[in-house]
Simulated scan of single mutants.
Amino acid sequence: MLSRNEAKYIQSLGHKKNRDNEGCFVAEGVKVVDELIQSGFAIRKIYALKKWAADNSDIKDVIEVDEAGLKRISNFETPNKVIAVFEKKKLRQSPDFNNKITLVLDGIQDPGNLGTIIRTADWFGIENIIASPDTADIYNAKVVQSTMGSIARVNMIYTDLDGFLYSNKIPVYGAMLDGEAVSAIKKTEECFVIIGNEGKGIRENIQPYIQKKISIPKIGNAESLNAAVATGIILYSLKIKI
């Protein structure tokens, strides 16, 4: 049975401030919830339809709810069988960037884009993502949903990019319209790859750190390329060079 206070509490976690204060976040859907459970995320509470609850009877802290109750606490139009409240994982604040490609996100504000970028990074074996403070929150419900569980495997650090890039000596690539075609860039095992804001690109104060500008050649008439799609093309070109 879902109480009114529980419903209000779950709804409150839609706000970043409350997620930060409580140290937890909401995940929805069978695939995402299963991935996070298997990855060892600590469970606060799970709210599920009768069948999911029965199929996962070994899991503690499961509250059975009906479809109306699930919809009441969902962030989406069509809830998918299960909603869980998990504790945030502890991020590695000083990871090793040597001999690795690391993504640097400068103001990626669309939650769907960020979630897809995290999922894409996971696909290509990217361990760490560095993000500006104004990048969307990794624990935003739409981000969590879009990652399809990849937040369990990708470490994401929010920090001042100016200071971060200044203090690191690894080669810096930047996705820019006037860059060299990424297909012509040699395969690399170590660099930072900066992906800029969906509409404004990489900020001017960050551009001086870029040692190699890279771009995706335009063939058709589209005005721009989605940030997540661009990230996938760039990572493929840098890591799977044939």
Rank of each mutant, 00 (worst) to 15 (best):
M1C: 10
L2H: 09
N5W: 14
N5V: 13
L13D: 02
H15C: 08
K17E: 13
E22S: 12
C24E: 11
C24K: 10
F25R: 02
A27Q: 03
V30K: 14
K31M: 14
V32E: 02
V33H: 00
E35I: 02
E35Y: 06
L36T: 01
I37A: 03
Q38S: 13
S39L: 06
A42C: 14
A42L: 09
I43T: 10
Y47L: 15
Y47I: 05
A48P: 07
A48F: 03
K50H: 12
K50C: 07
K50E: 15
W52D: 07
A53H: 15
A54F: 08
N56M: 05
D61E: 15
D61R: 15
V62Y: 09
V65S: 09
D66K: 11
E67R: 11
R72Q: 15
N75Y: 11
F76E: 12
T78W: 06
V82I: 14
A84D: 04
A84I: 12
A84G: 10
V85L: 11
V85F: 06
K88G: 06
K90V: 15
K90T: 15
D96Y: 07
D96T: 06
N98H: 15
T102G: 04
V104H: 06
I108Y: 02
I108Q: 05
Q109I: 13
D110F: 00
N113Y: 03
N113D: 05
T116P: 01
I117A: 02
T120Y: 01
T120F: 00
W123L: 02
F124S: 03
G125L: 12
I126N: 02
N128K: 04
N128S: 11
I129H: 09
A131R: 00
P133S: 04
D134E: 14
T135Y: 03
A136R: 07
D137L: 01
M148H: 08
M148K: 08
G149Q: 00
S150Y: 00
I151G: 00
A152H: 06
V154Y: 01
V154F: 02
N155T: 08
M156P: 01
Y158S: 12
T159P: 05
L161H: 01
L161W: 01
L161M: 06
D162N: 12
Y166N: 15
Y166L: 07
N168W: 13
K169S: 14
K169T: 08
I170M: 11
I170D: 00
G174P: 10
A175Y: 09
M176L: 15
D178C: 07
D178Q: 09
G179A: 08
G179Q: 11
E180M: 15
E180R: 11
S183A: 11
S183M: 09
A184T: 13
K186A: 15
K186M: 13
E189L: 05
E189R: 10
E190Q: 15
E190A: 12
V193H: 05
G199D: 09
G199V: 04
K200E: 10
I202L: 03
E204P: 00
N205R: 03
N205H: 08
I206M: 00
I206A: 00
Q207S: 06
Q207E: 05
I210M: 13
I210P: 09
K213T: 04
P217L: 04
K218N: 06
I219L: 14
L225V: 12
N226M: 04
A227T: 10
A228N: 00
A230E: 02
G232P: 05
G232I: 03
G232C: 10
I234R: 02
L235P: 02
Y236P: 03
S237R: 07
L238A: 00
I242R: 08
I242L: 04
